[in-house]
């Protein structure tokens, strides 16, 4: 195998002041934007649905279970096509939304099913006596979750939430399917135009790696910030 690297094309113009390099940077921004908002949607919905599944209300539990099964058992790519082709047919206003919103929703809902699993098992790993202690003090259900259970559960599940956040960065690559100019789309198109696939894939892969690594650092920072002295949350 013989291959000569050539990086100069990165500075070639693709029209006006834009070069492949500036295109790459924009693409990275798209990847990060999708990931950020996707995680936001996944975190909020996943937390709510996960909490529902730990309550005593059978309607909430059933709703949470159905939600989780639906979004977990359809491939992400198919869910993106659902948002692009199918849902606008039923809710026409979606047609007006920019495509990135569709991708954020698709990735967010897909991941929310996994986040809901995390929240559910995090809350359920706390002992029933902790729940009783909160109730015995007169806290109502909302207060019980907000002040007593969730602060503990969130600390338990930070590592799994981190890997979900890193998964979202990787999964954002599926946005190429509806032609959003994120990193993977850039890689495919620039490869076609320049035939310098190796260089392009290398750079793009490194950027994905850096992004995931950054998420890991942020999460370690948060974990350290909210760490409680001498405490392991173990079920008694």
């Amino acid at each position: 195998m013989h291959y000569t690297f050539n990086w100069s094309f990165f500075f070639k113009s693709i029209g006006g002041k834009e070069t492949y390099l500036t295109w790459l940077v924009t693409a990275w921004e798209w990847t990060l934007t999708i990931s950020f908002f996707g995680f936001l949607v996944a975190f909020i919905l996943g937390a709510i649905v996960g909490i529902f599944r730990t309550t005593n209300n059978k309607y909430l539990v059933t709703f949470g279970n159905i939600w989780t099964e639906i979004f977990r058992n359809i491939p992400l790519l198919v869910q993106i096509f659902l948002w692009y082709h199918v849902i606008p047919h039923f809710i026409p206003i979606i047609n007006k939304a920019p495509r990135i919103v569709l991708v954020v929703m698709a990735i967010g809902l897909f991941t929310s099913s996994r986040v809901s699993e995390n929240f559910k098992s995090g809350i359920q790993s706390l002992s029933i006596a902790q729940k009783h202690a909160g109730l015995a003090l007169g806290l109502n259900t909302l207060q019980l979750y907000w002040y007593a259970l969730l602060p503990q559960a969130i600390r338990i599940i930070i590592p799994t939430l981190t890997s979900e956040a890193m998964n979202i960065i990787k999964n954002s690559s599926v946005a190429f399917a509806i032609s959003i100019a994120e990193l993977t789309m850039f890689a495919m198109q620039a490869q076609e135009e320049t035939a310098r696939g190796i260089e392009i894939y290398l750079v793009v892969s490194v950027l994905y790696f850096i992004s995931a690594f950054a998420v890991n650092l942020i999460s370690q920072f948060i974990e350290h910030k909210i760490k409680i002295p001498n405490q392991t949350f173990v079920k008694q």
């Binding site: 009783h132 202690a133 015995a136 003090l137 109502n140 602060p151 503990q152 409680i228």
Partner: peptide
């Protein structure tokens, strides 16, 4: 109103059940 009633009944548990994050 159970929360209001429970607030007036103090309870101490076998394993203390303090809230570890507070």
């Amino acid at each position: 109103n159970l929360p209001q009633l429970r607030a007036r009944v103090g309870m101490v548990f076998q394993n203390f059940e303090l809230f570890p994050h507070l």
